[in-house]
Nucleic acid binder design. Structure first.
Lengths: 170, 170
DNA sequence: CACTTATTCTGAATAATTCATAATAAGGCG
DNA sequence: CGCCTTATTATGAATTATTCAGAATAAGTG
């Protein structure tokens, strides 16, 4: 465990200096939230709050929201919006990766950029659209993971997307 | 106007038969919602409700929500989730196009698929991820449109994304 | 035209997130 | 090292987006 602990100490040092050089104060709640999201990537605000409470039992969800929002626009966290689910956060920033979500169980996986590096930022515009200077390209893949393909309709699973609805039964 | 009216009559006929062949009933509210979204693409549920009320003054937002959800999983509408904004809908379905949102004013533009057709569905997986069978690839570009680049900080504009927050002023 | 049932309406509930204000503590300074 | 300023957090409530349960309505079928 010493190994992992050392790793987190190093990360904490990095985060601290990053915060410092951004002119932001280094607080226990910020470090705790960063550690929580590092430990469980794609965590929601609720997840993060629950994890942080191991260290700071009195923290509220609202504070976690504030911290998450602040760290996100400080560039230390990245916010992901998956369909029909609360926002999620991860510490992997600045590496141009994308996400795949299983429509069966809601599982989220990281995906490397499909087209290398730059092409992601050069869209081909639709005929009737005005141009923009693109800064980010978020790609969200949706599909079925192996587990869900084998067990098609399992109502006990967490289903974040539109559930069942077997139309056309006539 | 006869031209446009004829166009909408044709669309309405298409929608009706599509609904019919899906085993769904053809109702005035469904047609009105489809027409509203056709007229203003990327409309939110509220937008749609407001537009529909021109024709059906008594419709409620809840009903519009139900209709939008139903039409979406019937495949007649596509739901778009832009960051920090309610869900939006459009009638352009099945043509594999993407979207660009201006972080300044929130404007949304359609973007043709950047990498042709199939490549969008073949991600290169991150080393530690499990595979999925990809069905959809949603691409969301973010950037600044020409207007917003010229007038950097205009607080009167609608800013759906993280607003101002001029950090590091010391 | 009547009947079945999908669809809509009504009113309320929930989930996610934000806001205003007061309390606290980080970091700079004397 | 302790004080002071002000960023940050806590507290409590509000808002926004969306969904739900049950009653009323109307589409399509025979």
């Amino acid at each position: 465990m010493t190994e992992a602990a050392r790793h987190f100490d190093a990360l904490e040092a990095q985060w601290s200096s990053a915060l410092h050089s951004l002119g932001r104060r280094v607080t226990r709640q910020r470090l705790a939230v960063l550690a929580a999201v590092e430990r469980s990537p794609h965590a929601t605000a609720d997840d993060a709050a629950a994890a942080v409470r191991a260290e700071l039992p009195h923290i509220t969800v609202q504070s976690v929201y504030v911290v998450l929002a602040d760290l996100t626009d400080a560039g230390l966290l990245r916010r992901i919006e998956t369909p029909h689910s609360p926002a999620r956060y991860e510490t992997r920033v600045n590496d141009n990766h994308h996400h795949a979500v299983c429509t069966g169980c809601g599982r989220i996986e990281d995906v490397d950029c499909a087209v290398g590096h730059a092409p992601c930022l050069t869209p081909s515009w639709a005929p009737d659209s005005r141009r923009m200077t693109i800064q980010i390209a978020e790609v969200m893949y949706q599909g079925l993971c192996d587990d869900c393909r084998e067990t098609p309709a399992n109502p006990t699973d967490q289903v974040p997307d539109s559930p069942q609805k077997e139309q056309n039964e006539r």
